[in-house]
């Protein structure tokens, strides 16, 4: 109550304290959801493994050992060896970097792109809105994987092109989200107050509309990361993603495909890695949505 009646001695400190309290209560509620904690753990392990890959790996991921070709899992080759005698475990460890790289590339490009398009469309309205939303609908109307396939087929295979292609398919949901949020706030009192104070439309969009979308965007991003991992792996599997000898997980399954009946570990182990990581992001996303989604929060 003291906060309301008399101004705090140091308003910045008060804000910081309030934020800290908010964060603590958020963390407490998050840790009550065991599945979300599992998801967070998986994601943290992925980041840790990617950061310290050279120390965690037991072999050089590119070094063939011809005597160990297609070796079964053993004390020396933890998850076996592939058709050139490269250690699958070490390749998995190094592959985590590629996975994170693609995810990061797609997220940092697609989310801001979608946010800006959606926020501009929602704030300005009128024909800008109509045109932008038509474009969004066209992109939403095409199946993601196929569009990505066609793009990479035209651009040429490779990790950056794959990420670019996935970006082109990943931005429309963000635009939708941001537009819906912008339409709600664009005529709210506080936005009108800022507008009266002389703020430019650009300032309104960047400082007053986009921040309102962030919590839904974070939830969406977490789910998206699982989808991006799967699409990237699919492209890698088809041979349009990372090129050999890069240890990309989808491409590893693709080479292991020939040996699925006799040396099953070559193809199955990378799949388990993809599955685990994508499950981790999905679990985390589920838990975050329960906490952050304003629509769900209202219902409870």
């Amino acid at each position: 109550m003291t906060l309301l009646t008399e101004p705090a001695a140091d308003p910045k400190a008060a804000i910081r304290a309030a934020r800290w309290k908010e964060f603590r209560s958020f963390a407490r509620r998050f840790f009550r959801n065991p599945l979300g904690v599992v998801g967070l753990f998986i994601v943290l392990v992925l980041i840790f493994v990617a950061a310290f890959a050279p120390w965690i790996a037991t072999h050089d991921p590119y070094m063939p050992t011809l005597t160990a070709r297609l070796a079964a899992p053993s004390a020396e080759w933890w998850f076996g060896a592939d058709e050139l005698g490269r250690d699958i475990y070490s390749r998995l460890v190094h592959g985590s970097r590629l996975t994170l790289l693609i995810v990061a590339l797609v997220i940092v490009t697609s989310a801001p792109l979608g946010l800006i398009i959606g926020a501009v469309a929602g704030t300005r309205g009128g024909w800008i809105d109509a045109v932008f939303m038509r474009i969004t609908d066209v992109f939403l109307a095409i199946p993601k994987l196929l569009l990505a396939l066609a793009f990479v087929a035209a651009l040429g295979p490779g990790i950056v092109n794959a990420a670019l292609a996935i970006t082109l398919t990943a931005w429309p949901p963000y635009a939708r989200l941001a537009r819906a949020e912008a339409m709600v706030v664009r005529n709210s009192d506080y936005v009108n107050a800022v507008r009266l104070a002389g703020a430019s439309e650009f300032r309104i969009i960047v400082f007053h509309v986009i921040p309102m979308c962030l919590s839904s965007v974070i939830v969406r991003m977490t789910f998206d990361m699982a989808g991006i991992i799967l699409t990237a792996a699919g492209l890698g599997f088809i041979g349009l993603g990372a090129q050999p000898p890069l240890p990309e997980w989808g491409a590893m399954i693709s080479t292991g495909r020939k040996f699925i009946f006799d040396q099953w570990w070559v193809a199955t182990v990378p799949g388990i890695a993809i599955f685990t990581v994508s499950l981790g992001f999905n679990l985390l996303g589920d838990a975050l949505r329960d906490l952050l989604d304003p629509h769900l929060r209202q219902r409870k």
Binding site: A226, F237, I253, S278
Partner: peptide
């Protein structure tokens, strides 16, 4: 959880494992 697994598993990999 059954649904989440469906969302997370690479379909081509599950096909290979199914064949195996």
């Amino acid at each position: 959880v059954i649904g989440l697994i469906g969302y997370s598993v690479p379909i081509f990999w599950l096909g290979l494992v199914g064949l195996f």
